[in-house]
Simulated scan of single mutants.
Amino acid sequence: MAKKKTHASHGTPAVVALDRAGVAYDLHTYEHDPASGLSYGLEAAAALGADPAQVFKTLLADVDGTLVVGIVPVDGSLDLKALARAVGGKRAAMADPAAAQRATGYVVGGISPLGQKQRHPTVLDESAAGFDVVYVSGGRRGLDVSLAPDDLLRLTGGRTAPVARA
């Protein structure tokens, strides 16, 4: 994976954050097709020719009144109870999509764990450790970035825990 010097044409906050951090990553673009019938994440995996277990979606949940980012494989779902436990909370519910968009600065289907308007507690599913590289949204529909899970954790201040359900 080669770090590119600049990705000005894809200047989402996520790409800017990656460039500033100087970590190795690659950009992957594809044409988002709203008529595909697939979820955003499964559409990305299919378009990229990647294993859906290696492509991760970014979800926001409200855990005891605090927004928390859960990052799980696109072929699974977020276990809200496990997410709450991972951050020392009691109750979790999916965040309202409008609240998620306001808090992150991204639209649903393009929410990246990187470069959000403000940093939120972040939990990456432990399955990411099984890959040298994972794919996450680059900050818009049709743009993914691949990077090492350790770099993702470092840049988000996140931790790993078993928060995905098949």
Results as ranks from 00 to 15, higher is better:
residue 74 V to N: 11
residue 37 G to F: 11
residue 21 A to R: 13
residue 75 D to F: 12
residue 92 A to S: 09
residue 76 G to T: 12
residue 58 T to I: 08
residue 137 S to W: 02
residue 50 A to I: 05
residue 59 L to A: 13
residue 138 G to Y: 04
residue 89 G to P: 01
residue 44 A to N: 00
residue 51 D to K: 05
residue 53 A to Q: 09
residue 77 S to T: 14
residue 99 A to G: 03
residue 75 D to E: 15
residue 39 S to M: 12
residue 65 G to E: 08
residue 68 V to Y: 06
residue 122 T to Q: 00
residue 64 D to R: 00
residue 107 V to I: 14
residue 105 G to H: 13
residue 140 R to D: 03
residue 76 G to N: 13
residue 71 I to P: 00
residue 70 G to C: 11
residue 95 A to V: 10
residue 122 T to C: 06
residue 110 G to C: 04
residue 139 G to K: 05
residue 102 R to Y: 05
residue 124 L to E: 06
residue 77 S to C: 13
residue 53 A to P: 03
residue 41 G to I: 10
residue 95 A to E: 02
residue 64 D to S: 02
residue 82 A to W: 01
residue 94 M to T: 09
residue 117 K to C: 14
residue 45 A to K: 02
residue 28 H to R: 04
residue 107 V to F: 15
residue 97 P to V: 04
residue 50 A to M: 14
residue 129 A to Q: 15
residue 48 L to S: 04
residue 43 E to Y: 08
residue 133 V to R: 15
residue 58 T to D: 08
residue 29 T to E: 15
residue 80 L to I: 11
residue 128 A to S: 12
residue 80 L to D: 08
residue 99 A to S: 09
residue 84 A to P: 05
residue 99 A to F: 04
residue 46 A to K: 10
residue 98 A to G: 08
residue 123 V to A: 04
residue 36 S to E: 02
residue 74 V to I: 12
residue 75 D to A: 15
residue 50 A to T: 00
residue 85 R to Y: 13
residue 33 D to Q: 15
residue 28 H to E: 07
residue 106 Y to Q: 04
residue 69 V to G: 02
residue 41 G to R: 01
residue 103 A to V: 03
residue 131 F to T: 06
residue 93 A to H: 03
residue 61 A to S: 02
residue 118 Q to F: 02
residue 91 R to N: 05
residue 116 Q to D: 09
residue 88 G to I: 00
residue 45 A to I: 01
residue 44 A to D: 01
residue 106 Y to G: 04
residue 32 H to A: 12
residue 87 V to C: 13
residue 101 Q to Y: 03
residue 115 G to E: 13
residue 96 D to T: 14
residue 90 K to S: 03
residue 62 D to V: 11
residue 121 P to A: 13
residue 71 I to K: 08
residue 77 S to L: 13
residue 63 V to R: 02
residue 128 A to W: 07
residue 55 V to T: 07
residue 115 G to V: 14
residue 67 L to A: 10
residue 87 V to W: 05
residue 71 I to C: 14
residue 96 D to I: 13
residue 109 G to A: 12
residue 36 S to T: 06
residue 89 G to Y: 01
residue 135 Y to I: 01
residue 108 V to H: 01
residue 67 L to V: 06
